[in-house]
Design a protein around this nucleic acid. Sequence first.
RNA 1: GUCCGAAUAGUGUAGAGGCCUAUCAUGGAGCCCUGUCGAGGCUCCGACCCGGGUUCGAAUCCCGGUUCGGGCGCCA
Length: 443
Amino acid sequence: MSLKNLRTHYTVQIDPDEVSDQKVTISGWVHEVRDLGGICFVVIRDRDGRAQVTLVKKKIDRELFNFARKLVRESVVTVTGSVKGEGKAPNGYEIIPDEISVLNEAESPLPMDTTGKVDAELDTRLDSRFMDLRREKTHAIFRIRHVILQAIRTYFTAEGFIETTSPKVVATATEGGTSLFPITYFDREAFLNQSPQLFKQIMMSGGLDRVFEIGPIFRAEEHDTRRHLNEATSIDMEASFMDHFDVMEILENMIAYVYSQVIENATPSLEALGIELKVPETPFRKVPYSEAVDIVNAAGEEQMVWGDDIGTQSEHTIGESVFKETGESHYFITDWPTEIKPFYAMPYENDPLISKSFDMMHRTMELSSGAQRIHLHDMLRSRIEGQGLDPDAFEFYLKTFKYGMPPHAGWGLGCERLVMTMLGVDNIRDVVLFPRDRRRLSP
RNA sequence: GUCCGAAUAGUGUAGAGGCCUAUCAUGGAGCCCUGUCGAGGCUCCGACCCGGGUUCGAAUCCCGGUUCGGGCGCCA
């Protein structure tokens, strides 16, 4: 007998008008037991919802009644019974059981509450993430995350992009800037890759033309904030015969599409979180870096000189300023000083001090950064040298620029940041199943 | 890395030197209860992070440690 027989319906698939008085079998967790004496309600929870099992003492087998009222919360059970339309029941129906069997009884006390009656701190929830995932709100986040990722794949595919994967174990410290995790690769030292950047570009020389990748990136920074992880998910794209404006357009349209898909396909999850989403308006406002500096200096809380990187406080100042003006949370900061961007960002021909680079911001944090890339071998090599890196270590990369590299552009977008800004989640750890940060390596 | 803050039942909390035999909620055990949906009522169970110190007396004050949270830095 297949275990599939343990479920004829998910709880949400039961339509009392259709299956009234029919037998169904549902399986899931005992969410709550409410014993009122003469009547007992057992709430069964599965992935998509809940169903009420009702036992009236006088109308049901005494043994079954006593068994039901002693069920231990969060045990896994299978219930077979008949469906009865009932206005007083939560979904308009209840199940009158013939049989209840416990597949696996839960211990008690539970490491945390799953019903929403008592809060638990993030650290407690992450220590017992399996139990935390049984909470409606946590579950909703990961259902939405799935819809987001699915929408991104649909969008890229429709735009002619090919999904690729690049190696996470690499020999060279790729772009510089960030620290890498060293690992042992047989008898050699290797690193966990900080970004698919160099490989995306190599694929442009390979003629794949438009690629995207959704995958893990690793940063060994000892940062300790609500918006950083040491293992994150990067959504990356690269496209040939495009400049930075072209890929900014792809980015903003993708964001708008993803929001609209979440609204359309994740309604119950949004409701569970109490969120009303609005699709961001495109095109996003473009603020040149020099204008951003002026905004910061005019606000007076921090003073910047041209060429400084933009700090957290300043990011907020600019974000609020744009929001006041446009009512929109998303915007671009464009035309960054070449010196504070990675070596592969293309400088403007008429003003090489600034580059064809951009960051895509949410009012609260940076979401994405991208640029038109340098596709000329000699210029790229001297930029690598100029940043104090060893060009010989980049030979596998530089080589691909010598034999026909088209002009190209691309960006990387932080998946977790996209999710958290969309859902108004304060801590990035909330939107990753098993976050890896400075301190946490388990579960 | 740095600055600030916190640590009390399984979970979330109250607590400002003697009011603490430590509050409340949730939970667990038991009893009552026929329409609950954060069910309700009654009884019981369960905790002061670790180590030093101050004091007649410390959950409370001080020092050190550990762990956690937040800001900043670094970064996406």
